[in-house]
């Protein structure tokens, strides 16, 4: 693995741990870790996640459409990724219904301030030519899937005494993410070494992390 890839991965790892620290301090996650999480918290969480997960495959597709012919492998990787994930929001809807919620409520759910900002940012970045910085955004969002989702899922299930069917997205979505770091390293190697791209990937990760945390802060705030 090249030094350029290791350097970016290290900076991204630091951004992710700071992001985790910020999430820990949000009212929603504090309630979860202190065993004070309520069903309404979980449902509000699912509603925001659904909007953001639905957008995820869309901005990824848009980003792919803006990648030039010199980076076809990366374009293919993003398209495959988008295909894999573009129906995942249905799983969130099913989880929501299994908690006793009305499917119309989650489908018609309104994005909160943080979700609006996050979504706008993603589509804005994805609309640029060769939007390689979005690899940083993927690091944050994939990291949530592979590192945080199961941890949160287990705590939610235990605190609210929910059946598996109501926590499937958090508990099982992460299982598919085990190989993502390998895939991610391959994608980084397609655009590195390049100092400007490296800096943009890290910056995009920082902004995405901040806006994602804002989305969580705004739930039950």
């Amino acid at each position: 693995m090249s030094d350029a890839v290791a350097d970016v991965l290290r900076k991204l790892a630091v951004v992710f741990t700071e992001f985790e620290g910020r999430l820990e301090q949000t009212p929603l996650i504090r309630k979860l870790s202190r065993g004070r999480f309520e069903l309404a918290d979980y449902q509000a969480f699912l509603i925001q996640l659904r909007q953001q997960v639905k957008d995820g495959a869309l901005w990824m597709s848009r980003a792919a459409s803006n990648i030039d012919e010199a980076h076809l492998e990366l374009r293919s990787a993003l398209m495959r990724h988008a295909v894999t994930e573009h129906r995942d929001f249905r799983l969130l809807e099913a989880d929501y219904v299994a908690t006793g919620g009305d499917v119309a409520a989650i489908q018609g759910g309104e994005k909160n301030i943080g979700s609006e900002a996050l979504s706008a940012w993603m589509f804005h970045e994805a609309s640029k030519p060769n939007p390689f910085g979005l690899l940083g955004a993927m690091w944050i969002i994939e990291g949530l899937g592979s590192i945080k989702a199961q941890e949160w899922g287990r705590q939610v299930k235990q605190t609210l005494a929910l059946p598996d069917e109501a926590v499937r997205f958090l508990l099982y979505h992460g299982e598919n993410d085990a190989n993502h770091i390998e895939e991610f390293k391959t994608m980084l190697a397609m655009v590195l070494p390049d100092d400007a791209v490296a800096a943009r990937i890290v910056k995009t990760a920082q902004v995405t992390a901040r806006l994602y945390a804002l989305q969580i802060e705004e739930i039950g705030a």
Binding site: R10, A13, V14, T17, E18, E20, G21, Q155
Partner: peptide
């Protein structure tokens, strides 16, 4: 011990920051 897993990641982050 559940929290410890998260704390370990934060330690690693602090270490990698020193490296960076």
């Amino acid at each position: 011990f559940e929290l410890l897993k998260r704390v370990i990641r934060a330690w690693v982050g602090a270490y990698l920051q020193k490296v960076d």
